[in-house]
């Protein structure tokens, strides 16, 4: 490429500020006569640029980015703190709710037990009362029954005695009558 462009350059240009005669290469990037100037000016400009970057631009951008990072980290920390507070409040509320529920449950079951015990006691006493009444009635019935039986015997004896007296004209002896009635009634 260099040789081709070389002929090209020489053909079309006569005005080249930098003399390209002694090094033969008309190709400007390989023209060593310009090297010193380029090195010097690159050193000056790049050195200055480096100084500006190192002392002004880089610290400034780094500062901006750091500030932003700090701010974001601060905000995140604050948000986390608030979130934890909220979580704690929710936990406290839920605990209180659970406690209240337990308490209500306790009261309900206590009441239920009490009512059940009361009912049971009432039932037991009522049953005892009924049983006493039943037994009293039963004794009474038995008494009545035995009384009635005696009366029946008495009446039967009197009736039988009266009947026999009417029929035979003569009252039977008491012992005979009793004996006969017993056989008949039993």
């Amino acid at each position: 490429m260099a040789s081709q462009s070389n002929s090209n350059t020489e053909g079309t240009h006569e005005v080249i500020d930098v003399p390209a005669t002694e090094h033969g290469a008309g190709f400007p990037p390989f023209d060593s006569a310009t090297f010193a100037s380029q090195i010097l000016w690159l050193a000056i400009t790049f050195g200055l640029f480096y100084w500006i970057m190192k002392n002004v631009a880089v610290p400034r951008i780094a500062g901006i980015l750091e500030d932003r990072e700090d701010r974001i980290a601060g905000d995140m920390a604050e948000a986390n703190r608030l979130k934890q507070e909220t979580d704690a409040a929710i936990a406290a509320y839920e605990q209180a709710l659970a406690e209240a529920r337990n308490k209500a449950h306790g009261i309900a079951s206590e009441t239920r037990a009490k009512l059940k015990a009361d009912n049971e006691a009432r039932r037991v006493s009522a049953e005892a009362e009924i049983a006493a009444k039943v037994s009293a009635a039963e004794t009474q019935i038995a008494e009545h029954k035995s009384g009635a039986m005696e009366k029946i015997e008495e009446i039967a004896t009197e009736t039988t005695s009266a009947l026999i007296e009417r029929l035979l004209g003569k009252a039977p002896t008491k012992t005979d009558l009793t004996k006969a009635l017993k056989t008949a009634l039993n």
């Binding site: 462009s5 079309t12 023209d31």
Partner: peptide
């Protein structure tokens, strides 16, 4: 001339 642009 494509090389002209590189002249110093």
């Amino acid at each position: 001339d494509p090389i002209h642009q590189f002249h110093i």
